[in-house]
Design a protein around this nucleic acid. Structure first.
Lengths: 164, 164
DNA sequence: CGGCATCCTTAGGGATACTG
DNA sequence: CAGTATCCCTAAGGATGCCG
């Protein structure tokens, strides 16, 4: 069995101090790493806004849904907002913030991989509304080139600046 | 606070039977959903091959590393292979398979989000070796268009066919 | 409808010590 | 070096029931 040439070879090896929490991947997992968090975000993208729908469609119990939704709100990925349909009482809804909306590539990449490699799960595709073509999360550089895994270097330090 | 226009509006709402395991996202999480699995895969991309390095650099204990590595091997994301440096004894190494290599967009998307939104984690960037530009996981359709979140439709059914 | 309180089970994960 | 064995703790999560 041959070795797969996908390592980010070259000058990449990060220092050992990169243990768990000193890395943006690990940091992101601290925020959305729970299974139910992924599922709730999935439902948010699917259009869920109400508590009951979140719990039912994500297939998780209400206490868990309540806890995770609160976490997501506290971390600023979802915003809880009152809304009122004419003639009805005030209700609460959960809506994605820009910070939460940018999780979409993560979910898309997970969906892509599942579609390709999991034989027992149904295929689900995102499509570009204008042209109908399948959408996936692919590696691109800022210059617009499609990037293969072997063409990557890993560099520490400042890249795009943080927003908040 | 205004609503964010990022829902995949249109004819998207999946049926309720989409509970946890009937979705490629949930399916993928069944395979790599544990925190330590992500971290081990991260290290595999960073070039780790040996057990000790996996455990130490991922910052997890040996028993956990052993359990997760076995899972990843069982699921076909890593391959355990004997290798031998000249004049030394045989050793085992873990190498990414094509199935495992395709997790890279997931990790890249997680890294992107952490770089942008987590003020307390160090910035780490992937760069395109040829041109030096920053690499990210971005949404593209098969026709090559960059796709904004609001331009998406979700469709069930066959997309790219499974390999194995 | 949108939760919270309580109780319980399981899975993830750390520490330590030991083996081939 | 590459694990295993044991023990224990904590977090994730389900079930049920109650409340404004």
């Amino acid at each position: 069995m041959s070795e797969v040439a996908v390592k980010l070879t070259g000058r990449l090896s990060p220092r050992d101090e990169w243990a768990a929490d000193g890395c943006p991947i690990a940091g992101t997992l601290e925020v959305i790493g729970a299974r139910s968090s992924f599922l709730l975000l999935r439902e948010a993208f699917y259009g869920c806004t109400r508590f009951d729908d979140f719990a039912r469609r994500a297939g998780i119990s209400e206490p868990v849904a309540a806890a995770r939704l609160r976490e997501l709100v506290d971390h600023g990925l979802l915003a809880r907002e009152p809304y009122q349909e004419p003639g009805k009482r005030t209700r609460e809804q959960y809506a994605l913030t820009p910070k939460g909306a940018e999780i979409l590539p993560v979910l898309t990449a997970l969906m892509d991989w599942g579609n390709r490699w999991l034989a027992d799960s149904p295929q689900v595709q995102l499509r570009h509304r204008e042209c109908g073509a399948a959408v996936s999360a692919e590696l691109r550089c800022a210059s617009g080139h499609a990037v293969a895994p072997g063409e990557l270097d890993l560099v520490p330090g400042a890249g795009s600046r943080r927003r908040r």
